[in-house]
Nucleic acid binder design. Sequence first.
DNA 1: ACTTTTAATCGTAATTTTACGATAATAAAA
DNA 2: TTTTATTATCGTAAAATTACGATTAAAAGT
Lengths: 110, 110
Amino acid sequence: MGATKTEEFTLADITIAKYAKALGHPARIAILRILLERTSCICGDIVEELPLSQSTVSQHLKELKEAGLIKGDIEGKKVCYCIDAQAWKEAQQLLQVMFGKYKPCDTSCC
Amino acid sequence: MGATKTEEFTLADITIAKYAKALGHPARIAILRILLERTSCICGDIVEELPLSQSTVSQHLKELKEAGLIKGDIEGKKVCYCIDAQAWKEAQQLLQVMFGKYKPCDTSCC
DNA sequence: ACTTTTAATCGTAATTTTACGATAATAAAA
DNA sequence: TTTTATTATCGTAAAATTACGATTAAAAGT
């Protein structure tokens, strides 16, 4: 036991959960904020901005990459990270639709 | 090691990560969808709709509750779950603002 | 009072995540 | 070519997550 039963759910739920999971750590939110701040994407000094070691930041970057939310292109000695426009929009849309489905309930219990 | 360095980040990042983490599993997305479907919130048959055992579903419900996204009121023999309007709106807003910050980058690398 | 129903909690096991230092790997600079 | 800078990966350890069966707790029904 312990392994997530991913197969048993709908693709929509799996996809939204994948994106949400990637967003589920303050360090990764912080990384995304750094990438969101710039219009250009020459970025390689993410490590200095975070209270974590280089290897740990690299790991978080990997997870964001695996979720599809960011891309990393080798630019000489450094690696240039930026947000993946397509995945970003998909995640945004999926979450937006889900959050928009809420309607205040009419029974007394809540 | 292994413990998340939660203290070192901004409250905004911690909060958004907390909500995202709660959304980071297909089962919990499925649960939220079930709750979103109804305008009333007499719900106690969430277990039947999921391919998981009762104890596992209960655990997922607990995590959603701890993140603040849902509430559970005891209604006689059953427990009545529903979405917490305030937390829901906060999560929605935080995510919306963050996702809205994206602007396509102008350099060649991406 | 006893039984049934419903949901939480406990105990346990496997897996995954988080984190770091140390070590590669790669490309630019000297 | 050797050195330096930058990032990824490996190895490892602690902690958290996921999952389930068994048990407990509480309320309702008999």
